[in-house]
Amino acid sequence: MSRLPQGYRRCIACRRLAHRQEFWRVIRLASTGAIALDQGEGRSAYLCPTVACFNQGRRKNRLGRALRSAIPDSVWVALEARLSVTICPSLSEGSDG
């Protein structure tokens, strides 16, 4: 298995290589086996914050397979909420009144 450059990760949906800060991190915690977002130690999977990657990760269960665990609906809801914030930023930002 080839190693990625330090700090770089690959999206589980589109296979894009980028710095880890550009992705959502989903973790299966080593201590409890629970699924968490962004923080914790354990098996991690990375997903682009785009509609296409979100849909593919969910529809084809790529996130579940990468983490070797079932993904709870609450995690998908949280990711979808992040996606809607990314796509539709607050209307108050940038409005001149």
Score class of each variant (00 low, 15 high):
Met1Tyr: 01
Met1Lys: 11
Gly7Glu: 01
Arg9Gly: 06
Arg9Met: 08
Cys11Thr: 09
Cys11Ala: 07
Cys14Lys: 08
Arg15Glu: 08
Ala18Gln: 11
Phe23Gly: 06
Phe23Ser: 07
Ile27Asp: 09
Arg28Ala: 14
Ser31Tyr: 03
Ala34Val: 14
Ala34Lys: 00
Ala34Asp: 15
Ile35Thr: 14
Leu37Val: 05
Asp38Ile: 08
Gln39Asn: 11
Gly40Tyr: 13
Glu41Gln: 15
Gly42Phe: 12
Gly42Thr: 13
Gly42Trp: 13
Gly42Cys: 08
Arg43Tyr: 03
Ser44Val: 13
Ser44Phe: 14
Ala45Cys: 14
Ala45Arg: 07
Ala45Phe: 08
Ala45Asn: 11
Tyr46Phe: 15
Leu47Asp: 09
Leu47Val: 12
Cys48Gly: 10
Ala52Gly: 05
Asn55Ala: 09
Gln56Ser: 14
Gly57Lys: 10
Arg59Asn: 04
Arg62Gly: 03
Leu63Trp: 02
Gly64Tyr: 01
Ala66Pro: 06
Ala66Thr: 04
Leu67Phe: 03
Leu67Lys: 07
Arg68Ala: 12
Ser69Phe: 02
Ser69Met: 03
Ser69Tyr: 04
Ile71His: 05
Ile71Thr: 13
Val75Ala: 14
Ala81Phe: 01
Arg82Met: 10
Ser84Thr: 13
Ser84Val: 03
Ser84Gly: 01
Thr86Phe: 13
Ser90His: 09
Ser92Leu: 12
Ser92Trp: 09
Gly94Ala: 06
Gly94Tyr: 05
Ser95Val: 12
Asp96Ser: 07
